[in-house]
Design a protein around this nucleic acid. Structure first.
Length: 418
RNA sequence: CGGGGUGUAGCGCAGCUUGGUAGCGCGGCUGGUUUGGGACCAGUAGGUCGUAGGUUCGAAUCCUAUCACCCCGACCA
């Protein structure tokens, strides 16, 4: 990519609507723009980050043998009436009518649709277990959207669903997903913890939440010596006390704030029973299908990552989700042919190695360019001016560190293409 | 929904109390001087003051209604 032809929308002034740091930085760095309350467009830089996160999730889902699908976001009321949630889900379910006055809703979650999908094609227990996931927009008509993309009404979520002949198989797959989630959050390079949790609105017997640790998190977590936590409500039940302070002291726990970015559930037969999804087993006995569901708030992870990784200059992306791996900044390339030729040569070499590189060939000053890229948070910065062009080197700087060093082309390629 | 607040140029704001037809900073554009960490000078473009109605000779300013957005609380990935 060349910055002169790439839509960058950084802003100098602090946006007035933003309260928390991730929201401010996302607007300043030009990652997202608000459409209406709780709804955001992703600009090119923001969308690249979203795709990075999606791909890590996708790879780990595929790796455990969950298959990607896509379901419609507008869902017929009939399915929700079958599950009983048309009545119970409440105002968060945005309901609408089509031209024939049939009732629909915008999908906030997909248990009904996927249960319907599976029951139409499930003929034999031999097809089980079935594991499928999708990455798509969800809509929840939140009482109060806030903090930008952190709690939006429309957001990107990965939701996986599993179908099993028996509890043992569900338990096994629940563990598979749990392991996959740990891999995902490790690869995202975020400080996180898994906690025992309430299954809330979705229903079922067992659930775990994954939280990114951040002071601005909305959830209170109690974390033990092994890094395993519980949320407040669960802790009260688990330790049989209402006194949080006492629980903390007596059990040697640490209180931290978390941003919930993942939630996995053992649903049991709640939906399969209500929606009549059953199958004959080896002995021709009719069994209800055991289900699990596994969510990750993909777009929320962007905000969570920024909450955890920023400084006074802007975002400091973990390398695995940075929108670009490196930016090459020209000094006066438009006035200096040797600089222009040399920077293009570097750009081509890095591109050829598959390095995600953007060349800042805009007609602006070094300071402005550096400020833009430090705000956006690109992890590696290579500066080339007249002297670098002469010596065939670059002035190299890591985001988050102040010192600069001189690197040969070979070393630059080595550092950025590993 | 209850409580608090804000809508004026692309962004951030002043002006409103005490009506007289809109201004500042940043950004944009043009020209020149600069040029290795947000340059300087000069010039220039850009706003039916959220919307509708009312009061008045006259409304960004006063009154009424309405819409949008933000913050605190109840709900959630």
């Amino acid at each position: 990519m060349k910055a002169s032809k790439y839509p960058l929308f950084t802003q100098k002034n602090n946006p007035s609507d933003a309260e928390i740091i991730s929201h401010k930085l996302m607007l300043k760095a030009g990652l997202t723009r608000q459409q209406s309350s709780g709804q955001y467009s992703f600009l090119p830089i923001g969308y690249r980050v979203l795709k990075k996160i999606e791909n890590i999730i996708r790879e780990e889902m595929n790796a455990i043998g969950s298959a990607e699908i896509l379901m419609p976001s507008v869902q017929p009321s009939e399915l929700w009436e079958e599950s009983g949630r048309w009545e119970t889900y409440g105002l968060e379910l945005l309901r609408l009518k089509d031209r024939h006055q049939r009732d629909y809703c915008l999908g906030p979650t997909f248990e009904e649709v996927i249960t319907d999908l599976v029951r139409k094609d499930l003929n034999s227990y031999k097809q089980l277990p079935i594991n499928m996931y999708q990455i798509s927009s969800k809509f929840r008509d939140e009482i109060r959207p806030r903090f930008g993309i952190m709690r939006a009404r429309e957001f990107i979520m990965k939701d996986a669903y599993s179908f099993h002949l028996n509890q043992e198989c569900l338990d096994e797959w629940y563990e598979n997903y749990k392991k996959a989630y740990n891999k995902i959050f490790t690869r995202l390079q975020l400080e996180y913890t898994m906690v025992d949790a309430d299954s809330g609105n979705i229903g079922g017997s067992k659930s775990n939440e994954f939280h990114v640790i951040a002071d601005t998190g909305e959830d209170d977590l109690l974390i033990d010596q092994d890094g395993i936590g519980v949320n407040y409500e669960i802790a009260k039940t688990k330790y049989n006390s209402d006194d949080i302070k006492k629980i903390i002291n007596e059990n040697n726990l640490v209180h931290k704030k978390g941003i919930e970015v993942g939630h996995i559930f053992k649903l049991g037969d709640k939906y399969s029973k209500a929606m009549n999804l059953s199958i004959a087993d080896v002995e021709s006995k009719i069994c209800n299908i055991e289900m699990g569901c596994y969510g990750i708030g993909v777009s929320r992870i962007i905000a969570a990552a920024i909450e955890q990784n920023h400084d006074d200059k802007g975002i400091v992306w973990p390398a695995t989700i940075a929108p670009f791996k490196i930016v090459i900044i020209e000094i006066d390339g438009h006035k200096n042919e040797s600089v222009r030729i040399y920077s293009s040569e570097l750009y081509e070499k890095l591109s050829a190695k598959g390095v995600e590189v953007i060349l800042d060939d805009r007609n602006s000053k070094l300071g402005n360019k550096l400020n833009d890229w430090e705000l956006i948070g690109i992890p590696n910065i290579a500066i080339v001016g007249k002297s670098e062009a002469e010596t065939k080197s670059v002035t190299f700087k890591k985001r988050g560190q102040d010192d600069k060093s001189s690197l040969s082309i070979e070393n630059l390629i080595k550092i950025t293409s590993d």
